[in-house]
Design a protein around this nucleic acid. Structure first.
Lengths: 169, 169
DNA sequence: AATAACCGATACAACCTGTATCGCCAAGTT
DNA sequence: AACTTGGCGATACAGGTTGTATCGGTTATT
C-alpha cells in the first residue's frame, strides 16, 4: 500500500501526497487514509521510515571511505527516491511545521555516513563539519535547486582537495 | 500591490501565493489577480523581478571580494526575502514546470557575484565552479534544508581554505 | 458466540479553482 | 462634448478538494 504511495510520489512529485490523490491512485478508501495519515507529512514520514537504508562497511581509510560515500549518495540522488523526499520535505515544510523537524532529521541521516567515514581521520570537530558541508551540500543543491545530475566528479575532487589539504596542514 | 504580496510571502510562506489568499490579503479583486498572474509562479516571478538587486563594486582582490560576497549573501539569506524565494521556488517547481526554469535562473543570479569576484584570480573554469559550489552550497542548504542561521563563519573559512590552497597549488 | 478493531462507502458543509459575464469608471480620441 | 477603449470590481457558476461524521460489513480476538 505504501509502495503505491511511493510510486505516486516518484511520478507526480511531493505535491501528490494528498488524501484525495492517494485515494485515487492506490484504491484505498479515503476514510482509511485519513485514519492513518492525517497529513501529507505523515505519509512522507511513513515512506521515509520504510525506505531502505543501506549500511556501508568502513574500510578505515577516510579518503577511500569518503569517495565511496560520495558515490553512494550520488547514486541515491540520481535514483530518485532520496531526491524526491528532499523536494517533498521542502515543499511540506512550507506549510506544516512538523515537516521541518522531519526534514532536519532526514538531512542529518543523509550526512551521517560522511561523518562516520571521516571518523578515522584525526580531525577537530569543526573541520569535520566544514568538510562534510563542502562535499555534501553541492550535491544536494544540484539535486534540489538546479535539477541537473549531481556533479559526482566535483564531489570527488572536493574530497581530494579537502582531505589532502587537511592532511598536509 | 506587489508589496502586499511580498509581505504575505514572508509571513505565510510560499504556499500562500494563491489567488484566493492574495485576494483576501491585498484586497485586490480575484478577477484582477487571475488576469495578471495566472499562476502562483507568475506572482513569484513578479516579486523576484521587483526585488532590489544590489550591485557590488569589486576591489580586485579575489579573496577580499569573495569574503565580501559571503557576507552579503548571508545577510540576504538571513533577512528573509531571498530565503523565502528559494523555498517558494522549490515548492512551486514541484507542480509547475515553469518554476523550474525560474528557479535555475534565480540560483544562477545568486551565484553570479561569486563568479565575478573570482574573475580576478587566474583560475581554470572548472576550479571556479568547484570553489563557488563549495562556498555557496552550504549556505543555501543551511537556509533551505536545516532552517538554521546560515553558517557565515564556515563560509569564510571555506573561502580562505579554497583560495589559499589554490594559490599555493 | 460475543466483542472489538478495522475497513469501505456515503454524506455533508466549507472552501478553492478557473472561467465567464456584467456594469462601472477613467483615459484618451475624434 | 460624445465616443471608444482598457482595466477593474463584483457576481455567478461548475467542478474538485478538504475534514469530519456516520453507518454497515468483515475479520481477528477472547
Amino acid at each position: 500500500m505504501l509502495t503505491a504511495a511511493l510510486e505516486l510520489l516518484l511520478v507526480e512529485g511531493g505535491a501528490a501526497l494528498t488524501p484525495q490523490r492517494l485515494h485515487q491512485a492506490t484504491g484505498v478508501s479515503r476514510s482509511t487514509i485519513y485514519r492513518h495519515w492525517a497529513t501529507p507529512t505523515d505519509v512522507l514520514a511513513a515512506l521515509i521510515d520504510v525506505a531502505p537504508t543501506a549500511r556501508r562497511a568502513l574500510s578505515g581509510d577516510p579518503v577511500k571511505d569518503a569517495h565511496a560515500e560520495v558515490d553512494a549518495l550520488c547514486n541515491r540522488l540520481r535514483d530518485k527516491p532520496v531526491g524526491a523526499f528532499l523536494q517533498a520535505l521542502v515543499t511540506m515544510a512550507a506549510t506544516d511545521p512538523a515537516a521541518v523537524e522531519l526534514r532536519q532529521r532526514y538531512v542529518d541521516d543523509l550526512v551521517a555516513p560522511f561523518r562516520r567515514a571521516l571518523g578515522g581521520a584525526d580531525l577537530p570537530r569543526q573541520r569535520v563539519d566544514d568538510v562534510v558541508a563542502a562535499i555534501v551540500s553541492p550535491l544536494l543543491v544540484d539535486a534540489l535547486l538546479l535539477d541537473r545530475p549531481t556533479a559526482r566528479a566535483r564531489a570527488h575532487r572536493a574530497v581530494d582537495l579537502y582531505l589532502g589539504s587537511l592532511q598536509a596542514g
